[in-house]
């Protein structure tokens, strides 16, 4: 049984540690916040200028001056602090953020990441993704193991324009948890009843077992 999306997010949450400052990407990574143990103190950074991001507001708490990097309305917490974009990216680029969990279009076995543009389609922009992957201490990718058309996303080399070169540390998909290491993509953990052969069949990258 491959992991469900909730199980993937829960598995990603297990990688967090007490006291971590974390930046979550838009989409599935945002949901990782729902799986943090109650007794764990994790600070979420929103790159538009906030540490200590809280959940969505109730209807009467909505504040136009308080949004996340996905431009969604959010709330503050007792530990919240606000700052400008230069300060925000100084935190990111200065290596002060412990972990970023991001989505991906493609990941290569050398840690190259492509997640911002598909040539020929309208390019929306990289936002803060290039800064996050270049500056954050540990970059964890949370993604479907294969593209919608079934093609591999774990590749020998990315063929889409890169977001960063050699920047990925770990990858979580519905099949398991993988680490970029010597010789390729190392299997750290497999979802229940998922075989090494299935991972190899559904990947193009060199898959290394422990």
């Amino acid at each position: 049984m491959a992991w469900t999306r909730d199980e993937m997010c829960a598995r990603a949450a297990q990688e967090l540690e007490d006291g971590f400052y974390v930046n979550l990407g838009i989409g599935m990574p945002t949901k990782v916040a729902n799986f943090i143990p109650e007794d764990m103190d994790v600070n979420f950074q929103s790159e538009n200028g906030m540490l200590g991001m809280g959940p969505f507001p109730t209807d009467n708490e909505v504040d136009a001056d308080l949004i996340n990097a996905g431009k969604q309305t959010i709330t503050e917490t007792p530990k919240s602090v606000y700052f400008d974009s230069a300060q925000s990216f100084a935190m990111i680029r200065g290596g002060h953020i412990n972990m970023s969990i991001l989505g991906a279009l493609q990941v290569a076995e050398n840690g190259d990441l492509a997640n911002w543009m598909i040539p020929g389609k309208m390019v929306k922009g990289m936002g803060g993704a290039m800064d996050l992957v270049a500056g954050v201490k540990r970059v964890v990718i949370l993604m479907d193991h294969n593209a919608k058309d079934g093609s591999a996303k774990l590749l020998k080399e990315c063929n889409l324009p890169l977001t960063g070169a050699g920047v990925v540390d770990d990858i979580i998909t519905e099949l398991g948890l993988f680490t970029i290491g010597e010789g390729g993509v190392h299997i750290q953990e497999l979802a229940p009843d998922v075989s090494v052969d299935e991972v190899r069949d559904r990947s193009e990258a060199t898959i290394v077992t422990q």
């Binding site: 790159e47 974009s85 230069a86 680029r93 390019v123 922009g125 936002g127 290039m130 800064d131 500056g135």
Partner: peptide, 12 residues
């Protein structure tokens, strides 16, 4: 296109 942090730092 400028990466967001690059744009902010360019202004700073």
């Amino acid at each position: 296109f400028n990466p967001q942090g690059t744009l902010a730092e360019r202004c700073r």
